[in-house]
Computed example of a mutant assay.
Amino acid sequence: MPQGPELIIILIVILLLFGGAKLPKLARSLGQAQNEFKRGLKDGAENHDADDTTTERTKDA
């Protein structure tokens, strides 16, 4: 993980590449993608748990 001066250099390069106007849009889209990813993981875990419950009921029958 970059620290101190390395992080500042990376941020300056990103600012030069994308420009000041596009950075808020980029940050917003990254946040939305992160939220969607977390939601997908949660849904996948819930579906996996539901499948396990169905399998256990079938074994008991």
Results as ranks from 00 to 15, higher is better:
49 D>H: 08
42 K>E: 04
12 I>Y: 11
55 T>S: 05
52 D>T: 02
4 G>L: 02
3 Q>S: 13
35 N>P: 01
32 Q>T: 12
40 G>Q: 05
47 N>W: 10
4 G>S: 02
29 S>P: 00
45 A>K: 13
45 A>Y: 10
57 R>I: 05
16 L>T: 07
30 L>G: 06
54 T>K: 15
45 A>L: 14
48 H>V: 06
56 E>N: 08
54 T>H: 14
5 P>M: 07
24 P>C: 05
20 G>Y: 08
16 L>F: 14
60 D>G: 07
46 E>Q: 04
25 K>V: 15
7 L>M: 13
56 E>H: 06
22 K>R: 12
19 G>V: 01
43 D>P: 00
48 H>W: 13
60 D>F: 09
42 K>I: 00
56 E>Y: 08
40 G>W: 02
50 A>R: 10
9 I>K: 15
1 M>C: 11
58 T>P: 01
16 L>D: 03
52 D>Y: 09
53 T>K: 15
19 G>A: 00
47 N>I: 05
33 A>R: 14
43 D>Q: 10
46 E>Y: 03
13 V>D: 10
60 D>T: 08
60 D>R: 12
57 R>L: 05
20 G>V: 15
37 F>P: 02
18 F>I: 07
1 M>V: 10
9 I>C: 08
50 A>G: 01
30 L>V: 09
49 D>A: 10
6 E>S: 07
2 P>A: 12
28 R>V: 11
25 K>I: 14
43 D>Y: 02
14 I>S: 02
38 K>R: 13
59 K>E: 08
29 S>Q: 13
51 D>S: 05
15 L>F: 12
50 A>K: 07
18 F>V: 11
50 A>S: 06
35 N>W: 02
11 L>A: 15
14 I>N: 00
35 N>V: 09
16 L>I: 13
12 I>T: 15
13 V>R: 04
34 Q>A: 11
41 L>K: 14
9 I>G: 04
36 E>T: 13
57 R>P: 00
16 L>P: 00
42 K>R: 11
46 E>S: 02
26 L>E: 02
